[in-house]
Design a protein around this nucleic acid. Structure first.
Lengths: 121, 121
DNA sequence: CGGAATCCTGCACGATACTG
DNA sequence: CAGTATCGTGCAGGATTCCG
């Protein structure tokens, strides 16, 4: 009966992965790191994502205090997402991720394979 | 008929996420960033992972040239995984991930929720 | 000990349609 | 335009068993 209460992380990174671990979350944050964006802008930036997933992942990021949501009460609704301070603290990681991805694409690295579809970082 | 051939990334980070996007990959890399490890050591470091997933994710990382696998031909088999140079180039990101996770755990950030189990960065 | 193969399940995610 | 609700499903991933 000494089971750990619940979410005891074996390594701090797990906590980060809990937050960033959605299929699209990291990607969304990357886009938001360039500046606030409307829902539709995000959708266009990520052609593969569905409306449902977008909203869902955004909600979770919001609940985790990573992003902030602003609703403009006007007739064609307008909703803007932007990073919170906590979110900003992730910028370093996100930037590096992009940089690294660039290098990887440029084939600096030999094998460019792919397998696990799964999700998101 | 102008469909993009295949994996055309809208943003370089997607390439990185392709590589790190497995459910356990980032976590595995975090552990390996501290030094090479045997299969069993990794397993112990990640109580939640199954043998199957461990092997699978390791294979993919290997195919992507992120880690290197050494097999010792001895009777109780011994297999050691370590980061390649390409893998090493991820250390910065992995470290920051840990750091950030630590801060997040320490409750510097108010809401500590969780939802999408899914996977991995 | 490390891994491959098989079977099975759940839930993450997609598609669609509807509101304000 | 933004979001919710519902339904259906694939495939990621778990459990188990066998092999070198």
């Amino acid at each position: 009966m000494e089971t750990q209460p619940k979410s005891t992380y074996n390594i701090p990174a797990e906590a980060a992965l809990d937050v960033l671990g959605g299929k699209w979350k990291t990607l969304i944050l990357c886009h938001l790191s360039y500046g606030s964006k409307r829902t539709n802008e995000l959708k266009k930036a990520m052609p593969g994502i569905t409306q449902k997933m977008l909203t869902q992942q955004l909600r979770e990021l919001e609940n985790d205090g990573i992003i902030f949501r602003t609703v403009y009460n006007q007739v064609p609704p307008k909703v803007v997402y932007e990073m919170t301070e906590v979110g900003e603290s992730l910028k370093g990681i996100l930037d590096q991720l992009c940089e690294w991805g660039e290098k990887f694409i440029q084939g600096q690295f030999p094998k460019t394979k792919k397998s696990t579809p799964n999700g998101a970082l």
